[in-house]
Write a protein that binds this DNA or RNA. Sequence first.
DNA 1: CAATAATTTGTTTACGAATTAACGTTTTTA
DNA 2: TAAAAACGTTAATTCGTAAACAAATTATTG
Lengths: 350, 350
Amino acid sequence: MRETLLTIANRLGISMTTVSRVLSGNAEKYRISNKTRDMVMNEAQRCHYTPSAVARSLRTQRSNMIGLILPSVSNKYFADIAAVVISECRQKGYSAIVMDVSENEGFQKESIRSLAAREVDGLIIAPCGDDPSQLEMVDEMHFPVVLVDRYFENSRLSYVTTNNYQGGMTAVRHLISNGHSRIACIQGVETSLPNRKRVEGYVSAMKEAGLDEHIRVTGNDFSVQNGYVETRLLLNSSPRPTAIFALSNTIALGTFKAIKESGLKIPDDISLISFDDNVYLDYMEPPVTRIIQPVEDMAKLSVRILLGKIEDRRLRCESADSPGKDNSKSVLHLAPKLVRRDSVCVPFCD
Amino acid sequence: MRETLLTIANRLGISMTTVSRVLSGNAEKYRISNKTRDMVMNEAQRCHYTPSAVARSLRTQRSNMIGLILPSVSNKYFADIAAVVISECRQKGYSAIVMDVSENEGFQKESIRSLAAREVDGLIIAPCGDDPSQLEMVDEMHFPVVLVDRYFENSRLSYVTTNNYQGGMTAVRHLISNGHSRIACIQGVETSLPNRKRVEGYVSAMKEAGLDEHIRVTGNDFSVQNGYVETRLLLNSSPRPTAIFALSNTIALGTFKAIKESGLKIPDDISLISFDDNVYLDYMEPPVTRIIQPVEDMAKLSVRILLGKIEDRRLRCESADSPGKDNSKSVLHLAPKLVRRDSVCVPFCD
DNA sequence: CAATAATTTGTTTACGAATTAACGTTTTTA
DNA sequence: TAAAAACGTTAATTCGTAAACAAATTATTG
């Protein structure tokens, strides 16, 4: 026994339209009398009327929901993005349907379809895999999409990401300015764009300092395991590096463990710098120096851009004359930040 | 220009109903001929038809979405719950709308309303605040709800939670079996039920061992700050405790820091045991012994219970004779687990 | 071969809210 | 004083799908 516009209208002996107008806040616009308005308002309150967003969506072709597709919510980084996106959306009157696709391209495809079916007004996605075609199709259909964190080069898709190149540069320059030259870099998934950019930043900074011959990039996964294994190899090589740049905090954990096990001391024997933030990093022994991504800004901006696109589209649809293409491509590379802690110092000797 | 059942039907020169029947997988049931079925399937494929979940929901009065309301997604614990709930739901053909209410009761109320308006099929919620009335109202309306992690005593609401009492017991028994007697407990928000149960567990274990006079509970917040301050006080007291039981991992971080600063060694000078899991705890110096909550089971079970309730309700609605009340109250207290690491050992002297 | 049964397809209405066009009444304007 | 504008409201239609009901076609039986 759901309350609807009709049940209320019947009870009050007026038409559904009037009830609709009052309750959708258009009383002014349609000059409903105060008497009628109050009567409707009171009755709605009394019977706990909640308009059906489903029916409303069907009629208005807008859902006030956006889809948020993430590779893995249990990853702190993405969880933080989710938290910010969700709260930003709420502020603007939107809800977020969050999909966790477990780094699985198949699930991702399914999620996009499912969200499209739910007629969400737009999509924020940190895509997994390296095939933009799925998303480009969505974009072609004039459906608002913004990528976050991960993106594609040579694609028309808008995105917001960390300036990973700059992050890599900053990290390595920091090491170099501390007197390091044998700086090794342990990377994650080679094909991932953020990873590649971080590596490029590393390489540039090394070259800039004339350290070409010390460039050394190893590893192939964003995992503790990878960090551990690669670090052991690095420590056994000779001359061993005086500093390690880990391209993610998971890698850094593996590195941390390997160094501890080897009996070497951070930072006296070897320096460590990591990517990504986490409270725990401040409570390690020693606290870990790191490059942090502007998660909050990223999430906020991606929401803002998406809502902008949604608004644009709405306007374009209303003015029937314009053909209706969205040509704007927003691209943002936000600056990461260096957080100095105690895992980097001047090397003992060279 | 959206593709609908009608556009497809017109193009093929058949009725909408037939198209609907084929595409909703009821071809068998209504004995649609293979020829027609294939024709429809192919056409749907060709024009990328995606059924409107909105229209479908309006018609069927079910959305295949559930609402998940959490106090804070950026809290790793809840993020993990979200991840599991989302993936379990996907497996059962449901999507999850995640709401983050920032520990704000007002937002929570708003979220419940908004989800109700969206006609989600059910609700999983880790409620904030200590007022069950809102949720009890929802429950009264025969709307499927399951609480997770947090719950209310003296309420008819179903819930799934960790057996926090047992967790407290286990932690303290572990310390006692290692020879400790001066065991202090630093708690979080006093009024929160999980906190109270953990404290009760602590007290029981102490009494059980005849250590009544050593019972010592301090603190009032689930924060690093609180852990830090209370630990400093404890360390300055005399005789100081030989072990500290921190009721959350944030508290444990504060404790950790304070102990380090004091120059004392964990576990030789003082033992530490914590609540909640986190990878980082394995990489601290020393790795922290802790009680972990069965997050995955909790999330899975809450989904299962919720979907059960949803199913029940559906059946009850279909058979018009039965009045339609859901009397079942599911209550689950899942056993936490002790993860032994290196922050607990036999005290040096007593 | 007619009657009936089985199979296949179609017509229509309902879900709940929004919206267009229009109604009769009152007030203003020319 | 008649026409026009403003007012307060409503009936009817729409959104896309599902399903009850209805009908047409084909197959089977007496």
